[in-house]
Amino acid sequence: MSFLRTAPAFRAGLGMRTIHTSRVAAVQASKQVRAIAADETAGFKYTAENAILKGTVNDAVAVPTPNKAHGSYHWAFERLVSAAIIPATVAAAVASPTAHPIMDGVLGVTILIHSHIGFSACIDDYVDERKFGALGTACRWLLRVGTAGALVGIYEFNTNDIGLTELCEKVWKA
């Protein structure tokens, strides 16, 4: 009869064990009403240098609301811009920059967007607002102003001067 005796254990291994309702009731009864807010830090400040988190060990870190514009679309856009630099470079190098200033402008703007995304990723990693506060916000705005200024500079250089491609060619062979 050894088979019969091992049967319950075998069933338990498959996760078919019956639930002891008394245990569940006990757990429910021990649940306490929250006494501390989930963002409480007990007077400690969350800075770049320490490991202070909001709330107790039982409070999960706040998860941002899922947003495709910050997720899959953003990711796809980044790859699209990165990949676009390859044909843009080839086209700008092959075509005469003086005859096709728009091609040269497209290359400049594509590299600018790619660079802006790259710098943003660095801010996310090294000076994020969540940890660095005002410094992170300042970096974010410095980048925005820098990108806007660089965009104007690229436009001006493309319309009044020789453009990016020809500059590279001429400086390289100077």
């Binding site: 660079s115 790259g118 200024g149 660089a150 001067d161």
Partner: peptide, 12 residues
């Protein structure tokens, strides 16, 4: 990218 930005901003 830094060289690119500095160059574009200098032209301003």
């Amino acid at each position: 990218a830094g060289v690119f930005y500095v160059g574009a901003l200098t032209y301003l």
